[in-house]
Nucleic acid binder design. Structure first.
Lengths: 338, 338
DNA sequence: GCCTTACGCTGTACCGGTTAAGTTCGGGCG
DNA sequence: CGCCCGAACTTAACCGGTACAGCGTAAGGC
């Protein structure tokens, strides 16, 4: 493995017969450089195959042109079958690529890796840190923000509002309200819910939306809690059926759990939508293809990623026109299950 | 946003009353440093919250402690519904995290982004580059390897073997052979296949496996080609049925296409497995849950990611005991569809 | 014709670490 | 007692860029 010597600015300068400083100016935005010299330098750059050394550049500019995305789960939990994180990554990646920034991906499931993330950001290895969907009142975003590192979260952070960090979220409550209203319009009156984990804002807000809507209709609530996975949806649906065999509708706080619920309902001999109406939340690809196809509240996950990345780019450029909070709309997608 | 001044080695040295060099030796493996001094330095580090500046370190060590993973697809295609890339990322990430290296994720769908990747690696921003599942005879891995940059591919590269790059792959041909043999054992004789894209080794090898096995049995082949997506599976299955309404089995080169095929068979009024046996390739999570559950050839994707990462770590450490080619076994997982 | 000004380039001091070479000092040995 | 040696630390030379002060030159003003 011949680690070929990479040419330096110095080498280019010698070949073009100018000074390092001039080459530097040409390589960056060539402001106020004579055309003849600029051409000579560019030719030397091409001939030597010169590429600026990022470490040297970062050392003086204090910028790395790369942004971290933290997935606050252990690697094994992140990519089970849920398409949330992949979609976030996709949105973020599109936007960063367009801005010619690099994406550094970090899992941070354990407390140990929390330190790792903090040290990493402190080491100046990235210009900013984005968090995808946090659990509980994670102090890390606040900590980093206090250190002057640009931070953006997907999902409203649960930390006390001492130091507010910018975030992008979707209208959970409004989306759920529309879903529950559809169940009511279908004549359903025993409407249960499978809620998400109550240490995540997405879990809490969707449950709040359900409660509010049911309250308005003067109906009794019926709640089972899952953790957004398919299996937990199966378990929760079984509990709901055991508690109230007469239930005629269920709002499920994630599509993965909704697929579990469909499975459990089928196993219990209930027909969907004839006996029980089911509405999910997410609108993953597979929800079009389930049996029956799932009515669900669509949240624009890729857009969340893009928006988060755009906020971040605004922050690192110290632009003042970046909205620090963005709430994207949700939309009811009606299919066969309700 | 108060960009707090980060303490430098110099500051730590002053506070501990020693020289920069000594602090440096303590911060890295503290070889031959007196205990008293070491403790004093460590205390100063803690008090100041010192974290070494990665750019400065990289500049002199010529190492960045981070590794790139290239997904040779545009961002929008990578995370459609296929779990291949997420699983690779997961495996790679686990292994790199354990080695305290960072993962830089890059999409490289277009030719333009090819240059971006090349320039990025040349700029010394990463210590090595891993490629996930390439199309055609991509010259990029060879180019980088020639420049002395450690490279590992997932999937045997199709480039002419001028400069062989290390890779990890699975036993496509053996796995497919086992699958086809099962179809034969079930008494099937009109066995079709839905092949993967013929510009990818995974597509080519799986088709070869099918052809070989059918050849041995003295049966005629019946091929339709898809591109690993569910939709292409639906289309291909329709063509196969139109060509030979009597077919009694189909080996499908990916689970996503197999799910499409199941859909198309159901639409055409065929029962699985009574009328037609179906075997897929991948063993994604959802294949346990399809109707009927899918018999499939399991490939250990997460392990591929891990193995790839381990090879890479060996290369950057210039260890000589790293196998440059690893072929992982596949395994037939029998469920209801065949 | 001389001085001012602007322009364009060069020289060089950093950025914050690592590491080879140099210095100091205590102890073993002849 | 002097010499030599090694351990433990300091000094200083890089790594490869950026940016700022400075300087030469040509154009412009009077």
């Amino acid at each position: 493995m011949v680690t070929r010597e990479r040419p330096t600015l110095e080498a280019v300068a010698r070949r073009a017969g100018v000074s390092r400083a001039t080459v530097s100016r040409v390589v960056n935005g060539s402001t106020t450089v004579a055309v003849a010299i600029r051409d000579a330098v560019n030719q030397a750059v091409d001939e030597l195959g010169y590429v600026p050394n990022q470490a040297a550049r970062s050392l003086v500019t204090q910028r790395t042109e790369s942004i971290a995305l933290i997935l606050p789960e252990t690697a094994s939990r992140v990519f089970s079958d849920d398409m949330f994180f992949p979609a976030i990554i996709r949105g973020v990646s599109m936007e960063l690529e367009a801005a010619d920034k690099q994406l550094v991906l970090m899992m941070a499931g354990s407390t140990a890796s929390h330190d790792r993330v903090e040290r990493y950001a402190m080491a100046g290895h990235v210009d900013g840190v984005m968090f995808a969907s946090m659990h509980g009142a994670d102090p890390l975003p606040g900590t980093l923000a206090r250190l002057g590192i640009p931070v953006v979260c997907s999902g409203r952070p649960m930390t006390p509002a001492e130091l507010p960090v910018p975030y992008v979220d979707v209208d959970h409550i409004g989306g759920v309200a529309v879903a529950v209203r559809r169940l009511l319009a279908l004549g359903r009156r025993r409407i249960a819910t499978i809620a998400g984990p109550q240490d995540m804002v997405a879990g809490i807000d969707r449950l709040t939306g359900y409660r509010t809507a049911l309250d308005e209709a003067g109906l009794a609530e019926h709640v089972a809690v899952g953790d957004f996975t398919r299996d937990s949806g199966i378990q929760a649906m079984r509990r709901l059926l055991a508690d109230d065999p007469q239930l005629d509708a269920v709002f499920v706080a994630s599509d993965m759990m909704a697929h579990g619920a469909l499975q459990a309902l089928k196993d219990a001999g209930r027909r969907v939508p004839e006996d029980v109406s089911v509405i999910g939340f997410d609108d993953f690809e597979i929800s079009r293809l389930s049996d029956p196809p799932l009515t669900t509240v669509r949240q624009p996950i890729v857009d969340m990623g893009r928006t988060m990345a755009r906020q971040m780019l605004g922050l690192v450029d110290e632009r003042t026109d970046v909205p620090s909070v963005v709430v994207l709309p949700t939309e009811l997608v009606v299919r066969a299950s309700a």
